[in-house]
Design a protein around this nucleic acid. Structure first.
Lengths: 144, 144
DNA sequence: AATTTATGTCAGCCATGTTGACATATATGC
DNA sequence: GCATATATGTCAACATGGCTGACATAAATT
């Protein structure tokens, strides 16, 4: 139980330091991450993943767009949508953050061994609410 | 990677709702949890676990003490220390929150099976920074 | 007696969540 | 084609829970 807390705490620790150099926070990290993994995602889909209000997202996203980490462009099928995508600058930063966490995970994986990793995934997948918003974009936005 | 985010997000979701009924937040939950699991813990040890400043803790802890969820009393060996302990009221609330999360975990465990659970623990234990502050109070506080 | 340690407190700042109200552009339904 | 719904944005105000800095007190330690 508390392991989840410690894991999360230390998992975000290093990235937080890196982000601080750029005057960004954890919230910006999450946006970078999910936009990076879901190019051309629209705002609504992103809101559903993060489960925050559009006003909260707006502040964070606006900053990322303003500083050139993310670009927006209208959807082709639905021009009301603003589809989000990392710029090269955004990709770079995201990679830097990602690598850091990956290193930590890799260490844990190495220590624990492959079968443990398998179980880890298994359980972790089952913790969130039912269908989960992970890689199930089938229901929403096939944008652009 | 994102699984950790989703797991954490949904893991804290229900408890957050319950806490809101009492006008408390997630920070209070963490304190209740760790005090519950480490009766007679002193303030410094708690700060080391949470990795926050004493001013932050003070606000949260002060509230919990004020509303009778936690009691403090001076350490016997070192009377400067304030040892923390849940009251019956605190135990009740903590149980309620705990059970909720346990239910969620139990579901995941059941779905994933025992060997997966084993691996889950294995990996999760290895994610945090080295010695980890879990059950390793050997270096600090042997109070009261 | 001097210093260090454990704890508390005041005051203010910042990031990031919230609600509510309202605006605009586009898509959709009748 | 107009009415309405949807996708998004924006303004304003507020709450929580981090943070820093400064200072206070009691008890332990040297």
């Amino acid at each position: 139980m508390e392991l989840l807390f410690f894991a999360y705490r230390d998992f975000t620790g290093r990235p937080d330091e890196i982000l601080a150099e750029f005057g960004l926070g954890r919230a910006h990290h999450r946006v970078l991450y999910f936009v990076g993994r879901n190019p051309q995602i629209n705002v609504n889909a992103l809101l559903n993943i993060l489960r925050i209000t559009k006003q909260s997202l707006s502040r964070v996203l606006g900053r990322l767009v303003g500083q050139g980490y993310i670009i927006q462009h209208p959807g082709k099928k639905d021009r009301r949508q603003r589809l989000l995508e990392l710029t090269e600058k955004g990709v770079n930063l995201e990679h830097r953050l990602f690598n850091n966490q990956q290193t930590r995970l890799a260490r844990a994986y190495r220590l624990a061994g492959p079968s443990a990793v398998e179980g880890f995934w298994q359980v972790l997948t089952d913790i969130p609410d039912r269908p989960s918003s992970v890689k199930k974009p089938s229901e929403k936005q096939e944008e652009s």
